[in-house]
């Protein structure tokens, strides 16, 4: 009966049935179970524009280099405040249309950074437009492709009021009397990227990260975390350098320089700390800056500010954690007296 060596029918049937059964156990059954999740309370729907942006994200193959998953290991903590959970993908991972399936957003490679929380990390539309037009305008070492076909180069006289103009730094500028304006597609893509923000869980915490080993062994958890947090240069690179640049010179026409800046080098750091905490949009020639009060702790802000005040020829006194704390409290009282 089970003579596979001589009976081709049994052989073929056995391989077929065996494989289908195993496939149901390991793929079909768990997959259909994974569909039964609920969205988080208050989880926003994707708007029409955001969804269009997601489709562009897929058709340009962004997933080849960018993941969207925060794993439950500590090294991923930089990409989000908690590990990703299935509900996070409730609205974004649906079948796109009749022809195309649910997008593979989790990704398998990080040639570029994870984008789970990019909307919170970098909310500036101007930055995203510059970066998509040519990533090297803002991140000199980037190997990301440029997406000029999502933009239009038009005669400067023909720019209409509703057009979104991209202000390029001099070395990347197009021929004189022409202007780069953003097409609808890139605006949708940026809206999608801005929408990528990690929701807080209802119980306020969420899963824990598996800590990295050396902390536990060498100095104990707290000690090491503190010293990591105090590395102002590293924090500056992670948080600030995409706009203000590694050399502190900023990008002409988009992001102001910190080297030699009057605010940065001021003896009294109050204004500087306020800008970091609350954001800044007072100078029309530059893009607006987002607030960082939610993303950075007092100690981290102090470390960054100290780094900025003592680098690139700047020479101002260091900022202490307490200074930041005071100003943060002051702002909080100011807003809710």
């Amino acid at each position: 009966m089970f003579d596979f060596h001589k009976n081709h029918k049994t052989l073929v049937l056995a391989t077929f049935i065996g494989f289908v059964m195993l496939s149901f156990i390991v793929a079909v059954f768990p997959a259909s179970q994974m569909q039964n999740v609920k969205p988080l309370p208050n989880q926003p729907f994707l708007t029409e524009n955001e969804r269009e942006g997601l489709h562009i994200y897929i058709s340009e193959g962004c997933v080849a280099c960018h993941t969207q998953q925060v794993r439950n290991i500590e090294m991923d903590n930089v990409w989000g405040n908690r590990p990703s959970i299935p509900s996070d993908y409730y609205y974004s991972k649906e079948r796109m249309d009749f022809w195309r399936q649910s997008p593979s957003l989790l990704g398998s490679e990080r040639t570029g950074p994870d984008l789970t929380n990019i909307g919170a990390r970098q909310s500036s539309k101007d930055w995203h437009l510059l970066h998509l037009y040519n990533p090297r305008t803002v991140v000199g070492e980037s190997v990301m492709p440029s997406y000029p076909w999502l933009f239009e180069i038009v005669d400067s006289n023909l720019v209409k009021d509703e057009d979104v103009v991209v202000n390029l730094p001099e070395e990347f500028a197009t021929p004189s009397k022409t202007t780069v304006i953003a097409k609808k597609e890139v605006l949708q893509l940026v809206v999608y990227l801005q929408s990528l923000k990690q929701m807080e869980l209802p119980d306020g915490e969420g899963g824990k990260f598996i800590p990295r080993s050396r902390q536990i062994h060498s100095e104990g958890l707290d000690g090491d975390l503190k010293s990591a947090a105090l590395n102002g240069e590293n924090l500056y690179k992670q948080t600030c350098a995409v706009c203000h640049q590694d050399n502190g010179k900023g990008v002409v026409g988009a992001f102001p320089p910190l080297a030699g800046s009057a605010i940065v080098t001021n003896e009294d750091p109050e204004m500087m700390i306020k800008i970091i905490l609350q954001g800044y949009d007072a100078r029309t020639e530059f893009a607006s800056m987002q607030p960082f009060a939610d993303q950075l702790s007092d100690a981290e802000i102090a470390a960054i500010a100290t780094h900025e005040r003592s680098s690139w020829g700047n020479n101002a006194p260091e900022v202490k954690e307490e200074d930041v704390k005071k100003i943060r409290e002051f702002i909080a009282n100011d807003l809710n007296p």
Binding site: A31, S32, Q33, M34, Q35, P86, R95, Q101, S102, S104
Partner: peptide, 8 residues
């Protein structure tokens, strides 16, 4: 069975 993480 391909919506949400089913796809993954």
């Amino acid at each position: 069975f391909q919506n949400g993480l089913g796809e993954t």
